[in-house]
Amino acid sequence: MGLDFSVVPDYLDVIFLGALWTIAITVCAGLLSFFGGIFFAVIALYGNAAVRLPFRFFEWLFMGTPLLLQLFLIYFGLVQIGIDLPAFVAGAIGLGLHFAVYNSELIQTAIVSVDKGQMEAARTLGLSRGQALRKVVIPQAVRDVIPPIGNNMIALLKDSALVSVIGVGELTLSSQLAIGRTYRPFEFYAVAAAFYYLINVVMEAVLRRLERKTALSR
């Protein structure tokens, strides 16, 4: 059975729709991982022991186990306790939380390395600690870690393929759908690979632009 790419055009609309879902889940999970990362970082640095310790445990658990296993836990585990989430939502939460933990590590380091004088000056000007964090410290910390967070976002895009196993109809699952009809796995996985590569290239270009725009001239 050789290769025959002539069947591909018939399914391009299905694949294209899948690619849109891949972009959608990447954006949703990406936003969750970004804001979740900030939230976790603040908890890890400023929370009291009662929230910090469970968080540390959660972080250790999430960084030490495979994403695929976490997706199974979230998707099937929430059903067990009576929360029946659509696969897309469960997938976005799983991906988002997983990368939020990684982003939180980066943001914690960045917050610590923002000059102490910034916080002191903000407090002197009458801002509360929360306000000073939100308006002065965190914006500076986040700007410093845009490049590594961008790398995490690219990793997130590629790991979004995993949500196909819990039934999210994204690029991987839609190519499997086409394979189910045509029995042409090589052709359609190659097409899916090309789509991922393309999305990856565009995303990298956007991130580089963002990096240049937000970089300080020091």
């Binding site: 059975m1 050789g2 290769l3 590629k158 790991d159 979004s160 393929a161 995993l162 196909s164 991987t172 394979i179 042409r184 796995p185 090589f186 052709e187 996985y189 190659a190 899916a192 690979a193 991922y196 590569y197 990856n200 290239v201």
Partner: peptide
């Protein structure tokens, strides 16, 4: 630039072709 899962599928399911 390509998910590891896709590369794995390409090799395992597409390889015989």
């Amino acid at each position: 630039g390509v998910p590891a899962l896709i590369f794995l599928f390409l090799l395992y399911f597409g390889g015989p072709q």
